[in-house]
Amino acid sequence: MRRFSWFNATSLTLGFAFLYLPMIILIIYSFNESRLVTVWAGFSTKWYGTLLQNESFLDAAWVTVQVAVASSTIATILGTMGAYVLVRGGRFMGRTVFSGMIYAPLVMPEVITGLSLLLLFIGIGLDRGIFTIVLAHTTFSMCFVSVVVSSRLVSFDKSLEEAALDLGCTPFDAFRLVTLPIIAPAVISGWLLAFTLSLDDLVIASFTAGPSATTLPIRIFSAVRLGVSPEINALSTIMIAIVTIGVITASIITKRNSLAQQRDEQAAARTA
């Protein structure tokens, strides 16, 4: 018995207005002619132009993309291995410590993760730069990948793997030919999650970045501390647009895939 009442409609409307209005205002005012960010003075795209000429933002964006691609890729490999060990690894020495280390970074405050990694890098005399940010981001995002992938591994039928092994597959081939295609959606969403976490991270990057490498969030943060600026509004609009397109595309693809799978299953059921 579900009744969609006036109360429900109102709370959804107000709730989504609360979630989206700040971003919509930001987007509208990125097209504002005036430098005064709260006074509308006509439509203009000039802030996008100034943004594209701002070398420091472009450099920071390039560093951020490099870090995100590298760290999310390594994190996906390590995280998938970690998930496999957790779910299929059986018993081994130090298993509890291992699962603790997978889950702890998820709830660890970023300031602590950042501080501890910085102290490690200084302790072993590693020069801080892009490389250290990649190490830091890989470490916390591999745990998120592990959680996403292991939830998929838990739900899938282990006998498929065993059948492959019985039919003469090596364990590696069984993983490559049977397991990997099945967990692929989770691996991909793990990668996307790791990528976004890396793009988004300010605190850990601030601790682990040296003077030679500034990421976009660090650059934005130092600009934002001085107040609202139309360039930052323009930059935010571009980032919101990219994320929106990405998320909507991903959800359409998943929907299509699951419909295709349903069709295949129905077809298989008919022929059987």
């Binding site: 700040p22 971003m23 988004d200 969030p217 943060f221 935010s236 994320v243 929106t244």
Partner: peptide, 15 residues
């Protein structure tokens, strides 16, 4: 909104 930059979402409230 969860996929959108945290920093930008906080920043949007300053204005």
């Amino acid at each position: 909104p969860f996929w959108t930059s945290f920093l930008i979402r906080v920043y949007s409230w300053i204005g």
